[in-house]
């Protein structure tokens, strides 16, 4: 396996009056090429957890093994970790700073020690991958772009580093429905092209159900539940008690079931719901 987190615990401002336990005894594994979704209520420790994964925060106790190497160790080079693990923060457009889009996207690759030429190639590739036209946008200032474009450029800045593991913290927060759909498609495309593992933090159960191979459910700093989307979203009572909902399609099926219509409630996506409804509605006719 690629990532192995063992008994991770973290406390903020230890010994100060504001001391808070952010993570308690978290353990999980992620395989190479897996698409993992992390869900949880605001303040459940999702952001703290993902910041541990690329060494931005050091744990109080526990270990994080990436390809068998413990990144909490002292002699680990941060540059090597950051080369392997890309982290896209919430509202990543606020980290743009360069004069042109090209220079901004090249910032990460150059920090990894690539030559200017290699970096340039990666910039072209990354901008295409996020669905923007390189020729149109490369020489413009990132500050004159639209909100959705800015976010794509910021994400391009991370994927230009070609991480084997890409972590995205609510990449669709604050976007309109169209931009939301575009970003999701883009994530799927990156996953396909770069063949990397993806960890997606999201409040949107529909997105998680559609994309993820595995779901981690966080609650007050603890790992409440892990499993495939089908396994996790079957536990609707537990999810509700954690302040989380169901994917819209699953929710609809549950409502139909409660009205006495015999449908499968293991449906996760809109497409799945469509098929199931078609099956129910045409049952009598064939």
């Amino acid at each position: 396996m690629q990532i192995e987190v063992k008994n991770l615990t973290h406390i903020y401002s230890e010994g100060m009056p504001y001391e808070t336990v952010a993570l308690t005894d978290i353990s999980f594994e992620i395989d190479k090429g897996e698409f993992v979704g992390i869900i949880g209520h605001t303040g459940s420790g999702k952001s703290t957890l993902i910041q541990h994964l690329n060494g931005l925060i050091k744990p109080k106790s526990g270990s994080i093994l990436i390809d068998g190497v413990d990144i909490t160790g002292k002699d680990v080079k941060m540059r090597d970790i950051r080369r392997q693990i890309g982290l896209v923060f919430q509202y990543p457009e606020y980290q743009l700073f360069e004069e042109t889009v090209h220079k901004d996207v090249a910032f990460g690759p150059l920090n990894l020690g690539l030559t200017q030429e290699e970096a340039d190639n990666r910039v072209v590739e990354a901008i295409r991958l996020v669905g923007l036209s390189y020729d149109e946008i490369a020489d413009r200032s990132p500050f004159e772009l639209s909100g959705g474009q800015k976010r794509r450029v910021a994400i391009a800045g991370v994927i230009a580093m070609k991480p084997q593991i890409l972590i995205l913290d609510e990449p669709t927060a604050g976007l309109d429905p169209k931009a939301h759909g575009d970003i999701l498609q883009m994530i799927e495309r990156i996953h396909e092209v770069q063949q990397n593992s993806i960890i997606l933090v999201s409040h949107n159960m529909g997105d998680i159900a559609k994309l993820a191979d595995k779901v981690l459910v966080m609650d007050r700093g603890k790992l409440a539940l892990t499993g495939t989307p089908a396994e996790v979203f079957r536990q609707s009572d537990l999810l509700e008690s954690l302040g989380l909902g169901l994917p819209p399609a699953t929710f609809m099926m549950r409502v139909l079931e409660s009205k006495g219509i015999q449908v499968s409630t293991d449906i996760l996506t809109i497409e799945g719901a469509e098929e199931e409804l078609y099956r129910i509605l045409t049952r009598g006719k064939n």
């Binding site: 910041q51 690329n54 931005l56 941060m78 540059r79 950051r82 080369r83 890309g86 982290l87 923060f89 990543p92 606020y94 980290q95 910032f107 990460g108 920090n111 990894l112 800045g157 991370v158 580093m161």
Partner: peptide, 13 residues
């Protein structure tokens, strides 16, 4: 803190 971390994640030192 947030911006610093974001840039560190992009390899800034």
């Amino acid at each position: 803190d947030k911006i610093m971390k974001a840039q560190m994640a992009r390899g800034a030192d």
